[in-house]
């Protein structure tokens, strides 16, 4: 092969890889364009610091659920029960603290909410990894069981929760701090630890991961437990945000969570994507919702817009996958 050919081939490979990197990080240019559009059409979103702070504060519970969903997606699995886990953890803990009066210590309350979330998540993982349940059916079953379980526990909003339990979720600064710290910890865990890389490996090819010595069953159980943990934090933050626990808490959060994760570049098939991108997806959804609220759009229409965003996310995902496939095929053919 001549020097010119080698240089040409190297340049082609570099440009193809640049396209792949761009595809994987598509969320940031999208976020920039949407931000610019909103800055022009609804400048108050950015010029009013209180609006911006409220936007980030309101995004905390969804952000944590997106993180929970993204962790599952990276492992090649998914979780339809994220909202139900968040809601049930919050309702059960509120019952313990304010209705059954079993515990009054707020720290114990936090431990209980986390334990409930982790237990449900771990059960999801065990059913999938050990008993071979299909993730869709397993998490659909838990979505129904724990969604219904909330209503079985109470049909009335629960108030009178200990101040210490509610306070962190009631403070914008603390809540946003918890969201950012959660993402930072998980970004580091997934990038710099053998466990994080094992999750990517399982998501990319579970059989290959097993063949190279990864305990795939343990990894999957850990993934769902971690997911349950962040769902529980989401439930706790929602409790603080609203100041009480209503029976419909965290309902309808699963699909926005999928939308944010997918538009953030997390692959539906697992093994690819960055958690920071998912955070970008959360910001995008929150920004759009805030812009619609500030513009005075009918709140019922916001749900429609959420659905449209999900549709656009899926279209983008499909386009991204087919472009990626073409780039890879071209590279392999050479």
């Amino acid at each position: 092969m001549s020097t010119t050919n080698i240089v040409t081939r190297q340049l082609e490979r570099i440009s193809e890889r640049a396209v792949l990197v761009l595809l994987e990080n598509m969320i940031w240019p999208i976020l920039a364009v949407i931000s610019l559009l909103i800055l022009v059409t609804v400048p108050r979103v950015f010029t009013n610091a209180a609006t911006l702070e409220l936007m980030l504060f309101a995004a905390v519970p969804l952000g944590l659920i997106v993180l929970a969903e993204s962790i599952c997606l990276l492992s090649g699995h998914f979780d339809l029960s994220v909202g139900a886990i968040a809601g049930f953890s919050a309702v059960f803990t509120a019952m313990v603290l304010a209705e059954w009066n079993l515990v009054s210590n707020p720290v114990l309350g936090v431990l209980i909410v986390l334990a409930v979330g982790c237990t449900i998540g771990a059960t999801n993982g065990i059913m999938i990894a050990k008993l071979g349940m299909n993730p869709f059916l397993q998490t659909l079953a838990f979505f129904i069981i724990f969604g219904g379980g909330k209503l079985a526990l109470t049909t009335q909003p629960i108030s009178g929760l200990p101040d210490g339990y509610v306070a962190p979720g009631d403070s914008a600064l603390v809540a946003i701090g918890i969201l950012l710290a959660s993402f930072a910890c998980m970004v580091a865990l997934f990038r710099y630890t053998a466990f994080g890389q094992a999750v990517y490996a399982v998501g990319s090819d579970e059989d290959a991961a097993r063949a190279v010595g990864i305990r795939t069953d343990r990894t999957i159980i850990a993934v769902y437990t971690l997911s349950g943990f962040f769902c529980a934090i989401a439930g706790w933050m929602l409790t603080g945000y609203t100041g009480l626990v209503s029976p419909d808490i965290a309902d309808d959060m699963v699909f926005p969570a999928f939308a944010a994760a997918i538009v953030g570049g997390i692959s539906l098939l697992g093994g690819r994507g960055k958690l920071l991108g998912a955070l970008g997806g959360v910001l995008l959804l929150s920004l759009i919702e805030t812009a619609l609220n500030v513009s005075g759009v009918d709140p019922t229409l916001i749900e429609v817009v959420n659905g449209i965003v999900l549709l656009i996310a899926i279209l983008l995902y499909n386009t991204k996958e087919s472009v990626r496939e073409r780039v890879l095929s071209a590279g392999v053919r050479r």
Binding site: Q197, Y200, S204, D205, A211, G271
Partner: peptide
């Protein structure tokens, strides 16, 4: 034979 490679990594 199947190489056990993770294509996405």
């Amino acid at each position: 034979q199947d190489l056990a490679l993770m294509d996405d990594l």
